[in-house]
């Protein structure tokens, strides 16, 4: 079912029929990224409450293939500059994702929290990890996506818009990535 939806998604997203509202046009995106801003699919980020400037930069990078991920490169290909702004503004207004239902292991949460402070994640991403401007909201993002992304920044296989995250991740170990993702996904 998901596959069918997503194939339909590709068919729909490119047809920027002016009569379609943003609510209609974003349906294909939400097939993977989840209704109400919360993703239910592995390694696929929740979009709700994302900072609009960050979302815009990512959509731009997907369109220009500065960030390489086949499905998203295809999705973004036909979008105009105005489309990119429309989608990123809409995403920002969707409800932010909720923390995972489980309270989490206190010891791991504590380790993760210490790492967030230690590496100053909270300086650019804000103390509540809600992000600001070009710096994304990471609070309550999917744990698997957080871990994947941090690993990609660390080995520079994901090139950031600028080099900040590559620099920050230089000294973060794989074990620390696991704890960071665990905590950030559950931060309350």
């Amino acid at each position: 079912m998901r596959k069918t939806l997503a194939v339909l998604a590709f068919a729909l997203i490119g047809t920027s029929v002016s009569a379609q509202t943003i609510e209609q046009r974003i349906v294909p995106c939400l097939a993977c990224h989840g209704e109400n801003g919360q993703s239910q699919i592995e390694n696929t980020p929740s979009l709700g409450g994302q900072q609009a400037p960050y979302a815009l930069i990512q959509l731009f990078m997907f369109r220009e293939k500065l960030r390489v991920f086949g499905p998203m490169n295809e999705m973004a290909k036909p979008l105009t500059d105005d489309d990119l702004r429309l989608f990123s503004d809409f995403i920002a207004k969707m409800p932010k994702p909720a923390a995972t239902a489980d309270a989490g292991d206190p010891a791991r949460l504590q380790r993760g929290q210490a790492l967030v402070q230690h590496h100053r994640c909270d300086t650019c991403h804000n103390p509540d990890l809600s992000g600001k401007e070009n710096v994304p909201r990471i609070a309550n993002q999917r744990e698997d996506y957080l871990a994947k992304t941090l690993a990609e920044y660390k080995d520079n296989s994901r090139h950031g818009y600028d080099g900040s995250m590559a620099d920050v991740m230089g000294q973060v170990t794989p074990e620390q990535i696991t704890d960071l993702a665990y905590f950030i996904a559950r931060v309350r």
């Binding site: 390694n43 230690h118 590496h119 994947k148 000294q171 074990e175 665990y182």
Partner: peptide, 28 residues
Amino acid sequence: LSAAAQQPAAPPAAGAPPAAAPLPPGSP
């Protein structure tokens, strides 16, 4: 990827890092 991510986490090497450890050399 998710299968990999769901493997039990490796035991942390040394718990929380010392608070005064240096930032990576490139960090702004």
